[in-house]
């Protein structure tokens, strides 16, 4: 990782992230968090910030296919890895089945937890295309919905799974 210093002596590191299929090289400070690179440098504001302590899951993205809290990952540690955000799910302007299922099942209330919720669900369905309701609930246990709309969220994920069959 190349290190550069500006005229005031602040150190920056050059990192390369593959986000939603595209490579981006950015200069970041050591204390820059992955969520901030996504939201502020790459304008991918679909990923939300909630508790910022790894409890709520609003900032969930996929790191090499696995759901992680982007608020608890240094941008430097993500260097060279593949990131998928909510913006990366639609293919040719067509929303992902999960996104459609959330709309059809009224699984979105205020919407703030939705991107993280869908990323956790996406990782689950990729790994386990036909989950039980219990497995769905366990997969989204790290995503808090303060509107408490869990019933329809679980329904949406189950219906997206059925549609895959």
């Amino acid at each position: 990782m190349q290190k550069i210093e500006d005229h005031s002596g602040t150190k920056y590191y050059l990192i390369t992230l593959k986000v939603n299929g595209d490579s981006y090289t950015r200069a970041v400070k050591a204390n820059t968090l992955l969520v901030n690179v996504l939201r502020e440098d790459l304008d991918l504001t679909g990923t939300k910030k909630g508790c910022e302590l790894g409890d709520c899951g609003s900032c969930t993205v996929l790191l090499d296919g696995k759901p992680v809290n982007s608020c608890l990952i240094l941008a430097l540690e993500a260097d060279g890895h593949e990131i998928t955000t909510i913006e990366g799910l639609a293919q040719n302007d067509k929303p992902d089945k999960l996104q459609e299922a959330f709309v059809e099942n009224a699984a979105i209330q205020c919407g703030y937890c939705t991107p993280g919720m869908i990323m956790s669900a996406k990782a689950l369905l990729t790994r386990n295309p036909h989950p039980t309701e219990g497995e769905v609930r366990e997969a989204i246990a790290g995503n808090l919905c303060r509107c408490t709309g869990y019933v329809n969220i679980v329904k949406a994920i189950m219906s997206a799974a059925e549609e895959q069959q």
Binding site: G54, K66, V68, A139, G142
Partner: peptide
């Protein structure tokens, strides 16, 4: 331990 996201890291 914790939740799936934290268990991945």
């Amino acid at each position: 331990m914790a939740n799936n996201q934290v268990r991945n890291i």
